[in-house]
Design a binder for these strands. Structure first.
Length: 728
DNA sequence: GGGACTTCAGCCAC
DNA sequence: CGTGGCTGAAGTCC
């Protein structure tokens, strides 16, 4: 497991450990990213920080267009935080040396959202009337309002998107006539009721302590909240998928569980964050973060529209309000070209009838107008790149590629002869690589360029279906100590089954909704995995099909037996010995690998711990914190039914290289395979959240019991906010 | 406040 | 495996 013993500096020299000193160790904030996927942008932690500071205009600007001072600069908390962490400001665009004193924010009034004065859209309409008369009158009421409401205004150039009033949970207005309504109602009766969705959501929210969300947090998030909301969304989405599938196994019966989950959370429960629209980065979302649904972008405030590609907001300057673009999603819906790493050519919206596909000229309105204005104001625009998901042919992955600025705009005639707006955007310098990293990885895979620092192209020598590279691009070490690669767990003697199992008879594989399948029955009536191999919910134990089952090896209920699904590499970390990471994106709940090695008699664990100082041990008898923050007695934490201890010192697989973290992105689940009287317990690792390529994979090694004294304490370098400071 | 309109979804079938 | 059909939901506009 932890590679501390292999010449790294994560463990003090043996024999001379000053425990009092070790105990005093503070969480280190020095996990310098080797690859750009890391804690990088450190997220804006101060929600009250002024998002904009003044910089000199960087014209030239066209006549009649005044430069918008507040843009083009990051907020101060970025810099402070990163200075404290001993890192340079991650984005460069902060360029603080050129910043004169900030301009009072009320010089740039924002339109007031309904949460502020309950009068949404007033200023817009008022404005239009005034300009219609050719006279611009400063609205005194509005102005004094904005000064009095200093609380919402300190958050600066931002506005509430949708402030859900407390207690309006029943609000789910449906457009359309009664005919549409009844049909919808009918459909919902056929699948499952709103009550089911609601109670599922309430259950999850209670467990994750998000039943009522602080309005301040709803407006301005942080990394922890962003991750928690994404986790809840995906748990609910997976649960709804599973419920629908079991009720009606015919394909096509699943009615957008992504939308159901998102609206239940956002609209009904008010669970969302960063609902204040803003320019620039979003607190808690880092460059390189990945998403699998458009609704996820909405939930965390990265991009509000559920479908539209351009998000924008009206900004009141000294006189007029004008729309400015805040973010775009580039999904290849139009013919975007020249997507060469840090440059993006983006097409305007409109010009096509969604019904019949008929085309006409695009107009300079809505998003197109906002893009045009943003070109002149030179504000930062967030870019989310939609890419094809290789693991899911019809699916897409959205990569947050950081902020860009619009360089240029023009119109073109498309194939149908209609004019289309085009915008050239270039990436603001100094941000961690995101989209370009994806391109590099593709080139490594295609063999166009080679991954630098490769020691071995395949450390498994063909034992796995996927290659696993051994890479060191930080120092001279030529590899970890010798071990034998084995892809699965080795039992000398299986546990004995409490009751004999004859297995299932699902010739074509176990199907959801088949209530006769004994394997599905043992999993509580559901197949535990989705069709994509994603674990649908946390379980205390997963029952997979075993040797005596008639189903084929590709049965959905044999996920952890099917081998590696992603392209992994074992790499030398900067300060934690060897580690594990993936070239491929991994979605939340996806199976990663099992813990292979030799099953050891649990009574030998002390002996093993003392002779196996490098910690190549998996011990299910340790104390593992449940993933859920609430100790709900009805929810059992993952706990193996037998005391399973695995040694991977002499033989093991990629799992032995996974390092410890106090806020990990991977967790383990016990998986049981039974045949006749024998029980084979395995440890399977799954992603807790979406993991972008090249982000180190870590799990929580757990705490030792008071009688497990032979384990040696090691200094933890995980760098997370809730780091315990040590691990075993 | 409400309803129409717009929109680089997502899923499955063909 | 590409594409076409179908149902979507948020936000803006009116």
């Amino acid at each position: 497991m932890e590679q501390g013993g292999l010449g790294s500096d994560s463990v003090p020299p043996s024999g001379s450990i000053d425990k009092s000193r070790v105990l005093d160790v503070r969480p280190l904030r020095c996990l310098v990213p080797m690859f750009p996927s890391s804690p990088g942008m450190g997220s804006v932690s101060n929600p009250h920080a002024t998002p904009f500071v003044c910089v000199p205009p960087t014209g030239p600007f066209p006549p009649g267009v005044s430069p918008l001072y507040p843009f083009s600069v990051s907020n101060g908390s970025h810099n402070n935080q990163n200075t404290a962490a001993g890192q340079p400001g991650p984005y460069g665009f902060g360029n603080t040396s050129t910043i004169p004193s900030p301009v009072p924010l009320n010089a740039f009034r924002t339109p007031q959202g309904p949460s502020i004065n309950g009068d949404a859209g007033r200023s817009r309409r008022g404005n239009r009337n005034r300009t219609g008369q050719g006279i611009v009158i400063e609205d005194d009421d509005d102005y004094s309002d904005s000064q009095n409401h200093s609380e919402p205004y300190v958050s600066g150039f931002s506005m509430h998107v949708n402030d859900v009033e407390a207690g309006s949970s029943g609000r789910r207005k449906k457009g359309g006539g009664s005919q549409k309504r009844t049909r919808r109602a009918q459909q919902q009766l056929e699948s499952f009721s709103e009550v089911d969705v609601d109670s599922e959501a309430n259950g999850i929210l209670a467990v994750f302590r998000l039943a009522e969300l602080d309005p301040d947090k709803k407006s301005n998030g942080d990394k922890e909240l962003v991750q928690r909301i994404l986790l809840i969304f995906d748990l609910l989405r997976r649960k709804l998928t599973q419920l629908e599938e079991a009720k009606d196994p015919t394909p096509g019966s699943t009615r957008r569980p992504d939308l159901r989950a998102a609206t239940t959370l956002m609209t009904n429960k008010g669970v969302r964050t960063n609902s204040l629209k803003r320019f620039g980065h979003v607190p808690g979302v880092e460059v390189g973060d990945i998403f699998f649904f458009r609704m996820e972008l909405c939930l965390v405030g990265l991009h509000a529209p559920s479908m539209a590609g351009i998000d924008y907001m009206s900004v009141k300057l000294t006189m007029d309000e004008e729309p400015l673009a805040v973010s775009i999603v580039s999904s290849g819906g139009y013919d975007d070209e020249g997507n060469d790493g840090d440059v993006l050519i983006y097409s305007g919206q409109g010009g096509v009838q969604r019904r019949d596909g008929q085309m006409f000229d695009q107009k300079l309105e809505r998003g197109n107008l906002a893009m045009e204005k943003s070109l002149h104001r030179a504000n930062e625009v967030r870019v989310i790149r939609g890419l094809k998901d290789v693991a899911n042919s019809t699916g897409k992955i959205y990569v947050y590629d950081g902020v860009y600025k619009i360089q240029n705009s023009w119109t073109e005639k498309n194939k149908s002869g209609c004019s289309v707006f085009k915008y050239k955007l270039s990436r603001v310098a100094g941000q961690p690589a995101a989209f370009t990293l994806w391109k590099s990885i593709q080139q490594w895979k295609d063999g166009v360029t080679s991954r630098s620092g490769v020691i071995l192209p395949d450390l498994t020598s063909g034992a796995e279906s996927q290659l696993v590279s051994l890479v060191n691009d930080v120092d001279d070490e030529k590899g970890p100590a010798y071990f034998t690669y084995i892809p699965t767990l080795k039992y000398s003697k299986p546990f004995s089954s409490p009751k004999p199992s004859t297995g299932c008879h699902c010739i074509g594989g176990c199907q959801p909704g088949d209530s006769n399948c004994p394997c599905i029955q043992r999993n509580g009536g559901y197949v535990p995995y989705s069709s994509l191999g994603v674990l649908m919910s946390y379980k205390s134990l997963i029952y997979e099909c075993g040797q005596t089952c008639s189903c084929p090896p590709n049965c959905r209920n044999r996920m952890s037996q099917a081998g590696l699904k992603v392209r992994l590499e074992v790499f030398k970390t900067k300060d934690k010995g060897w580690g594990l990471r993936s070239w491929d994106p991994i979605r939340a709940g996806a199976f990663i690998c099992e813990y292979a090695g030799d099953v050891v008699d649990a009574s030998r664990v002390s002996e093993l711990a003392s002779e196996n100082e490098d910690g190549y041990v998996f011990d299910s008898t340790r104390i593992y914190e449940p993933l859920e923050p609430v100790n709900d007695p009805s929810i059992e934490p993952a706990k193996a039914p037998f005391p399973l201890v695995i040694s991977a010192k002499n033989s093991g697989n990629v799992a032995r290289f996974m390092n410890h973290s106090c806020s990990p992105n991977v967790y383990w689940q016990p998986v049981l395979q039974e045949s006749n009287n024998d029980s084979y317990l395995h440890i399977a690792f799954f992603a807790i959240r979406h993991v972008p390529p090249m982000q180190e994979l870590t799990f929580d090694y757990g705490m030792i019991r008071s009688d497990q004294t032979s384990y040696r304490r090691k200094k933890c370098l995980c760098g997370s906010a809730k780091c315990r400071g040590y691990f075993y």
